[in-house]
Design a protein around this nucleic acid. Structure first.
Lengths: 166, 166
DNA sequence: CGAGAATCATTACAAGCGAGAATGATTGAC
DNA sequence: GTCAATCATTCTCGCTTGTAATGATTCTCG
């Protein structure tokens, strides 16, 4: 449909959106929303952190984390433990069920990666990961975490992205 | 921060989000939201289309286009022309100002691409575009257009995406 | 020629999501 | 021992998006 060769930047936003959606579909299979999945991963990475620490790590307002933790705690995935030393803050931990869920997510992510990059052979995948990693590093993105979504103006509407293909 | 080598799929969503945001910042410089920029581009590509045709092309509900076109028409960028043959539908066209804006967007997109991929030399950029293009084709994405955003469950919250890095 | 189905644009409505400000409890500094 | 600072929480507001109902016009078919 497009006459000109599509630019890499445009492909990046297009594929990024697509990949995020596909991943969202996958985590829905274990009854998680993408934000919830992100929280599980963050807690698994550094157990016992306070909610505020998690919020800063994820680049989200702390108020948002409250509801997120609430839902996952009710479900028995996460638990809040009081810190005897400082009773203001909670320490967020994974329950045994939570650890099982974390493992599920790992398998899910691997399957996602495999399906998404089905068109590339292993060597090409490494090349792609290398190129993307260098761009990400140059842009100052934290390896394990999404950029601050807070400032995102309208990634949502997203007809906005196509024009960069020009 | 991340211990394991980050997977390409995760990098894709991370960079895609980042690229979309950066592009949003750029179009804000000409007082456009990303969705508006997408609409300008779509009209420039095929002038005279009906609003419903545009809606289907962009994968957005037709009702959303009304407000979008309203704003840009008020601003003197777009104009609705009655079709004498079928007076139900409007033909959406670019005004001279709109064409100038389209050219601005083109330059903007080029600058965006250049800045985003500053870490790569021309050959590497071609390699990246090639790999991404093949993945996009395999995933059945329409070259010039974003995937249907309508079904997007929670690309927004977006802590969801990080976990695929596992 | 006329009645009914279909299509395009528009408006009005309701819902979901996220962000920001104010509140309470607890702790560290002086 | 008092005051400022920190963490968690609740509440409220604004924004964006999708769905449903309305009006006007055109095509189809008897």
């Amino acid at each position: 449909m497009d006459d000109r060769p599509t630019g890499a930047a445009f492909l990046l936003t297009q594929l990024g959106t697509h990949a995020a959606r596909r991943f969202g579909e996958r985590v829905a299979a274990v009854d998680l929303t993408p934000p919830q999945a992100g929280l599980v991963r963050a807690v698994a990475r550094e157990p016992g952190r306070s909610q505020q620490a998690l919020a800063e790590r994820l680049g989200t307002p702390a108020t948002r984390l409250v509801a997120l933790v609430d839902a996952l705690e009710e479900r028995g995935v996460l638990e809040r433990r009081r810190n005897p030393d400082d009773r203001r803050l909670y320490a967020v931990h994974l329950t045994p069920d939570g650890e099982a869920l974390r493992d599920d997510l790992g398998r899910l992510a691997a399957a996602h990666e495999d399906a998404l990059l089905a068109a590339l052979d292993p060597a090409e995948r490494r090349t792609l990961a290398d190129l993307l990693g260098r761009v990400a590093a140059a842009e100052g993105l934290t390896p394990g975490v999404h950029p601050g979504y807070r400032d995102l103006p309208a990634d949502r509407g997203s007809q906005g992205a196509p024009p960069c293909g020009t």
